[in-house]
Simulated assay, not measured.
Amino acid sequence: MVTIVARAAAKADIRTLSHVLARAFYDDPVTTWMLPDTKSRTKNLSRLFATMTRHHHLGGGGVEVACDGPVIGAAALWDPPNRWQQTVRAQLAMTPTLVRAFGFRLLSAHEAMELLKRCHPEEPHWYLAVIGSDTGVRGRGFGQALMRSRLNRCDAERCPAYLESSKAENVPYYERFGFIVTGEIVLPGGGPTLWPMWRAPR
């Protein structure tokens, strides 16, 4: 039996992890609202996750993948304390991909991201921006391995953690790791609801 191991991601992992996350988020309420075209959604999600990882998350040292042998089954994009906001340089680097992916939905996507920024806690914390398991390995513990890896560090550093759940059915999953719901965020323009969740260190 092969053990699932969480490890830090490298640049060489970006292509694979972006495909994993694209499949994981294909039916997510936020991505289906922002990217309504079912034919191009997977390709655009892969582009988005790749550029986000390359230009923002990877530099903070918070990107991890869960592997079963050589296979990447899940990925998590964490940002360290006080590093969750993108730099101007990163924003400029990502702009061409954002325009290509969102097209006429770019303004709606921008408004949604700005709302999430305004609702973001000010207290220093580890921010779980994205976590997802490939559709073929869900329920096998890949996501749990990623959660335990980073939350163990949070506890060792006595640092809180924060995320926004885009699915109501995922809230109990995060609660099992110690997160609690702190409110609701309704995206503008008829968008879906997200549940901000906070976890105090243990």
Score class of each variant (00 low, 15 high):
77 L>H: 15
55 H>C: 09
63 V>Q: 05
21 L>Y: 09
31 T>H: 11
32 T>M: 06
104 F>V: 04
2 V>N: 14
105 R>Y: 03
98 L>T: 00
30 V>Q: 00
141 G>W: 05
46 S>T: 14
24 A>N: 01
136 G>P: 14
67 C>G: 10
130 V>G: 03
139 G>E: 13
122 E>Y: 00
19 H>A: 14
79 D>C: 08
3 T>H: 13
18 S>R: 07
36 P>E: 06
58 L>V: 12
97 T>P: 00
115 L>G: 02
141 G>Q: 06
51 T>R: 13
119 C>H: 13
59 G>P: 03
4 I>D: 12
10 A>W: 05
14 I>Q: 12
118 R>L: 04
15 R>N: 14
113 M>Y: 03
91 Q>T: 10
40 S>I: 12
132 G>H: 05
90 A>R: 05
73 G>A: 08
127 Y>G: 10
9 A>W: 11
96 P>R: 10
77 L>P: 11
92 L>V: 02
74 A>M: 07
81 P>C: 08
79 D>T: 11
141 G>A: 05
24 A>G: 05
11 K>W: 09
49 F>Q: 13
78 W>E: 09
92 L>E: 12
90 A>G: 12
80 P>E: 15
107 L>P: 06
129 A>D: 15
106 L>C: 01
49 F>H: 15
14 I>T: 09
130 V>T: 11
45 L>W: 13
38 T>L: 12
82 N>P: 01
85 Q>V: 02
85 Q>W: 05
58 L>D: 15
111 E>S: 03
30 V>L: 07
120 H>R: 10
71 V>D: 15
135 T>I: 14
43 K>M: 03
98 L>Q: 12
46 S>Y: 04
19 H>V: 14
96 P>F: 15
